[in-house]
């Protein structure tokens, strides 16, 4: 066996509380280059919070992170935060796509895609535009280049949101239930795009309720339960032959009624 490659992302003992509510109870995870990791779990189990600690959108109280040049020990003296430069570097190297597409409505599709490369990476505008056009062509939306987001379908908006993140040439992509807000007939086009990214070797961490998709694209599936990774492994094992009763229950529920229509309290 060849030696395991150094992980692209290493998290150790991540803890996060909101007030007295402990949402993440010590999560450790290594992700290697090119790996696709899916996260499943019940509502409120901490999946989004976990994803958001990776790019420091949420600041954990404990734990360490190593990602490229960025190393940080959150357990250091209380209130210590990364510098503005460190944060920017971390976030420009990690792309994140949300359930709500959050395109900027006052900018055209093209402007949405070039805004960050031009402002944050100092890419010259003509270069940024030609890069963006290549990306838009790839997601099949080049002809929408000058349209405003309001004129696009949800699926198209989400694909542009993905392109906007990709324009920064991230080393890691985080997807948080990116198809949950879409009409069922629009889910496919977004999943197809994500699958093609995975096939190209993009390192991805995705929270999803699309079990079939998770099975098809991921190298590893994590089951979150009450703030811990309760079970993990190859999708064939975790999704077909779960060990814990809680995961079995969860899969049963999700496969037999569509939880996307679940109303959260």
């Amino acid at each position: 066996m060849s030696p395991a490659p150094a992980p692209l992302l290493r998290l150790n003992g991540i803890r996060k509380s909101f007030g007295t509510l402990e949402v993440l109870k010590g999560i450790s995870l290594d992700v290697v280059q090119g790996e696709v990791v899916s996260i499943i779990g019940a509502s409120g189990s901490g999946k989004s919070t976990f994803l958001r600690t990776i790019n420091a959108m949420e600041i954990p109280q404990q734990g360490t992170i190593d990602f490229g040049n960025f190393s940080f020990d959150w357990s250091g003296s209380a209130g210590r935060r990364p510098s503005a430069q460190q944060l920017q570097q971390l976030r420009t190297e990690i792309g994140m796509v949300f359930q709500s597409f959050n395109l900027w409505p006052h900018m055209t599709v093209l402007q949405n895609v070039i805004h960050a490369p031009v402002m944050l990476r100092g890419v010259k505008k003509p270069k940024a535009i030609s890069d963006a056009e290549t990306l838009l062509d790839r997601i099949g939306l080049l002809e929408k280049r000058d349209a405003y987001p309001a004129k696009l379908s949800g699926g198209q908006q989400q694909r542009v949101a993905i392109a906007r993140a990709l324009a920064m040439k991230p080393k890691l992509m985080l997807f948080d239930e990116v198809t949950s807000a879409l009409d069922p007939e629009l889910v496919h086009e977004v999943l197809t795009l994500m699958a093609s990214l995975a096939a190209e070797g993009m390192t991805m961490l995705l929270v999803t309720h699309e079990i079939a998709f998770a099975r098809d694209v991921s190298d590893r599936v994590l089951f979150f339960d009450q703030g811990v990774i309760a079970e993990q492994g190859h999708p064939d094992q975790v999704l077909r032959d779960p060990e814990s009763p809680r995961l079995r229950q969860f899969l049963h529920r999700i496969l037999h009624n569509d939880t996307r229509h679940e109303v959260s309290p």
């Binding site: 790019n55 990690i94 949300f98 900027w104």
Partner: peptide, 20 residues
């Protein structure tokens, strides 16, 4: 979400306010 998506891309608070 407008701020979130901007922060996640690496924009600072001031840049987000001014341009988004």
């Amino acid at each position: 979400g407008q701020m979130e998506s901007s922060f996640a891309l690496g924009f600072s608070r001031a840049q987000t306010m001014r341009t988004i």
